[in-house]
Design a binder for these strands. Sequence first.
DNA 1: GTCCGATGTAAGCGATGCTAACTTTTCGGA
DNA 2: TCCGAAAAGTTAGCATCGCTTACATCGGAC
Lengths: 201, 201
Amino acid sequence: MTPKAAYHHGDLRAQLIEAVRDLVETHGPDGFSVAEAARRAGVSSAAPYKHFKDRPDILRAVAGEGMDRLRVAMEQAAAAHPVGSLEAVAAIGLAYVDFARTEPGVFRLVFGLTEGHENAPDLQEKGECCFGVVVKAVADRLKRPTNDPLVQRRAYMLWSFVHGHSFLHIDGKTRVSAARIDDWLYLTEISKGVLATLPGA
Amino acid sequence: MTPKAAYHHGDLRAQLIEAVRDLVETHGPDGFSVAEAARRAGVSSAAPYKHFKDRPDILRAVAGEGMDRLRVAMEQAAAAHPVGSLEAVAAIGLAYVDFARTEPGVFRLVFGLTEGHENAPDLQEKGECCFGVVVKAVADRLKRPTNDPLVQRRAYMLWSFVHGHSFLHIDGKTRVSAARIDDWLYLTEISKGVLATLPGA
DNA sequence: GTCCGATGTAAGCGATGCTAACTTTTCGGA
DNA sequence: TCCGAAAAGTTAGCATCGCTTACATCGGAC
């Protein structure tokens, strides 16, 4: 099973995704080339096109895989706290920020897709699943159904908050603020604030 | 003054920036090439390198110019409302979102720089100026000095909120939320909520 | 008027995205 | 068990791109 053993080594697709993920992480979303990924996988530069349509298609796959991991991380974070607790909500936010911090390249890829994946229904669906995790936690907390507009609205508020913080964080913009930020305290405070103001529209 | 009249037409640099901005807007931050920009400006593909060091340098210039326009838009938005009013704060946020919506490509460029401009002191400074607009409005509202950590903290909260909303908006992620969002109401609500919870750390 | 620097062009190198045509391996069905 | 098609790899090659080098041209200072 050495890499050289097989003409068809079977898992080239997975190996390419892994290589691309690494490249995206170390050289930024732009500093990646299909050729370099193929080189790392030990195959010719034309081989990737047997598994992916084109360059955006590869990035799409990496983004999709990243979204799956993000959703799992959020679910696990929520599951570590009592259902309906404020901590569960804050933990989801922290998982989100942690993901952005540990894999800024993939994170940026997931949310910065503008090459050729505007119409990528699978990515759209994965994204809605991620949002669904937040919605569920908020619904549990507020003791309302998930399709309640108020729940959706609060969940979106929390999401945009955490999303913005994540981006500013990986862009190094947090340093402009004099006070250093403790993510857990910050997210707890935000969650409480957003979920408390029930009289909103 | 026809474009053909001059061998040195004098404003090639500005013309290139304009062309790049258009390309970034229509084809995404990645779907831009120095060659295409030169073609649009009617010069040879080597001409841009007389004005810019390399490709990232051009993008940096476009980003810087975009940041200037963003700051001006925020300042004007704030100036349209009484000093210290909640509306001034919300208006700044709306200007931010509007910028992202009107020029998603440039907006993404400004905040997604990962090619070769980690150490771009001028961009860093421009960014801090933008943040300064928010800080000032918050300080006026809270009747506290701009260097008060509480002011900085509230301003950062508002910024991350608006920043996240902007990104989610241009990524088309807002549609996952059932209820349609009225930006002005939304931003007013957020501003009030964030600035009201004074007992925060 | 003349010279020099700023600004343009032309030509070319190496790398890239992707395709075409070919070879090798795998595997399901007669 | 063999065999033929599809899957998965290869090499070769085209057009484009980023960027450099060497050369051409303009415009202003003296």
